[in-house]
């Protein structure tokens, strides 16, 4: 029973991270299309897409946040392996727990602080120059993604500590 819930929790997190990453990917594709449309527009009919710079900035910000959980799940973050190449597996496991702890703590701290900053951004009407796109949109996406990162970290900690080897 316990095993089953662990697996389904794991699957749920993985599915979420996949959806997030793909959404970010499609945002990137859309940004490329907007930019190219803007280039074609201004070199043919002399009209670019208003605020293409702002759209790119905001879209990129959201996309990068959406990419973060998948990167963690795939152990995509670079680690220096120079000094620990010959360590025992148990040492590596302990070091892994430490870095997962740090990652989880950092993710939740980011999520919490970005929530505060996001509310502030909303209150103070932070927005882009021409299109008045509100900055708090990016904060919202960022907080959700950081939370997912934190839960992925918790999940890995939990499975490692229980002796499982879900990856």
């Amino acid at each position: 029973m316990m095993q089953l819930t662990a697996t389904s929790r794991h699957l749920l997190l993985e599915r979420l991270a996949n959806i997030f990453a793909l959404t970010g990917g499609f945002i990137m594709l859309m940004l490329a299309i907007v930019t190219v449309a803007s280039i074609i527009g201004r070199s043919t009919i002399g009209q670019s897409i208003v605020g293409d710079y702002e759209i790119t900035e905001m879209g990129l910000g959201m996309a990068i946040f959406l990419f973060l959980p998948k990167c963690y799940q795939q152990k995509g973050h670079v680690v220096v392996d120079l000094f620990t190449a010959h360590c025992k597996p148990s040492t590596i496991r302990t070091l892994g727990i430490i870095s997962d702890l740090v990652f989880t703590a950092v993710s939740f701290t980011f999520a919490y602080q970005m929530t505060l900053s996001g509310f502030e951004a909303k209150e103070y009407l932070e927005q882009s120059m021409l299109l008045a796109l509100p900055t708090w949109w990016t904060f919202t996406v960022g907080v959700i993604c950081m939370l997912l990162c934190g839960f992925c970290g918790l999940n890995r900690l939990y499975t490692t500590l229980r002796g499982g080897n879900h990856e």
Partner: peptide, 10 residues
Amino acid sequence: ILKANTVFMP
């Protein structure tokens, strides 16, 4: 209003 194609960039 002057029918320019307005761009904003850093």
